[in-house]
Design a protein around this nucleic acid. Structure first.
Lengths: 206, 206
DNA sequence: CGGCTAACGCAACACCGTTTGCGTTAAGCT
DNA sequence: AGCTTAACGCAAACGGTGTTGCGTTAGCCG
């Protein structure tokens, strides 16, 4: 939709940008997201939003797509451990921002694909995840090119992305998420890079 | 709300049960969840639903609360590895059922606590997670009572619950979730119980 | 057994999201 | 520059959600 449009002139692009910005703004404000609200804040007519995105789910899917799908640059610190640590910290920081968190929640709520939708753009949540996955693959490929032994992308997703996202999504009680983010990420990365070292530093529960 | 009601007579209980059942049924059917729909399917008047639960969010929160909050029995196979494996498999199976998955999605979408809600019952998503956490603590305490070295509940939540739930929530492309669930859980549990063995079985990426 | 009251059912209403038809603007192309 | 048409704005009408007031049912208690 956004990528290949029949007439990507300045007008449609302006509308798209304004609507996307309105979506994230309303999401960050915590207000209920409705098409008329978005349209009013974007300065466009609600009819245009309905025609281009159909409903709120499609609107969220597209917004999440451009927000998470665009593979931003991954850190390059010179070592796999440093890269994963910096990347994980960035994920934690990002998942903590209200807009991204709300977008993530909305993407999850929308589900992989509504049966009613014929063949819209890729679903929002899968788009978000494949974006992260490609970033992880880039980091791992770089590490492998350096000669380092790298885990599989699946392990990174399961053991690094999953805890961070789940904690953010479920709003775990403050102490874990707020105070110990650095430590958490550090310990996760340690176990990822070299599982054997985890045994030495692991505490015997409580 | 459900726990301490001023008049827990048979009528209110019937209404509560019927509404809860209607919610999970509609959720499983994938149809959009609205108060009138739920009320119609439950055979009660929509007004009653509005009065007792306020809106859809409150309804979902209460439903998720009784669905996930009730700490069901945890497996007791005689070893920590066996317990975690059985428990993880049960989690995968549960997260795969349409009703539970939809309820989980809805709970995440509702967020930890809407600012508009004064002091309703505990939020749905946190309720779900603390239920799991208490189950994990039970398993770990049992293992510790046996003399086994057990990881912290946080590690179990981060490395076992988080991957399972995230994969379910984001609807990862079929192969990972559908085919290799047993293997996945098995490998996760292996790493949890004895991280050192993970190195031997880990593949060098691709 | 009889009163009290919380909880429910019913009906009418107000509000908002969504759809539809038509006129207008402006991007793309020759 | 002029034509074509995709995309947008406008306004009216529709349908369903959420609200309110009142009458009724049925648990709980003296």
């Amino acid at each position: 939709m956004t990528p290949t449009m029949a007439r990507p002139g300045g007008r449609s692009a302006k509308v798209t940008a304004a609507v996307h910005r309105a979506v994230v703004d309303l999401l960050a404000a915590g207000e209920p997201l409705t098409v008329p609200q978005v349209a009013a804040r974007a300065g466009v007519n609600a009819t245009s939003v309905y025609r281009r995105w159909g409903d709120v789910a499609g609107l969220l899917a597209d917004t999440a797509l451009v927000r998470f799908g665009t593979s931003s640059a991954v850190p390059d610190t010179g070592s796999l451990r440093g890269d994963l640590l910096a990347w994980g910290a960035a994920l934690v920081e990002e998942a903590g921002r209200p807009e991204e968190l709300a977008l993530l929640r909305a993407a999850v709520a929308a589900g992989p694909a509504d049966p009613g939708a014929p063949e819209r753009v890729e679903s929002a949540c899968s788009a978000c995840l494949v974006g992260r996955s490609s970033q992880a693959e880039t980091i791992l490929a770089t590490a492998q090119a350096r000669g380092e032994q790298a885990p599989s992308p699946t392990r990174v997703l399961d053991h690094l992305v999953a805890p961070i996202y789940l904690r953010a999504l479920f709003g775990l009680p403050a102490p874990a998420v707020e105070v110990l983010v650095d430590l958490l990420v550090d310990r996760l990365v340690d176990r990822l890079v070299d599982p054997a070292t985890a045994r030495a530093t692991s505490s015997p529960r409580r």
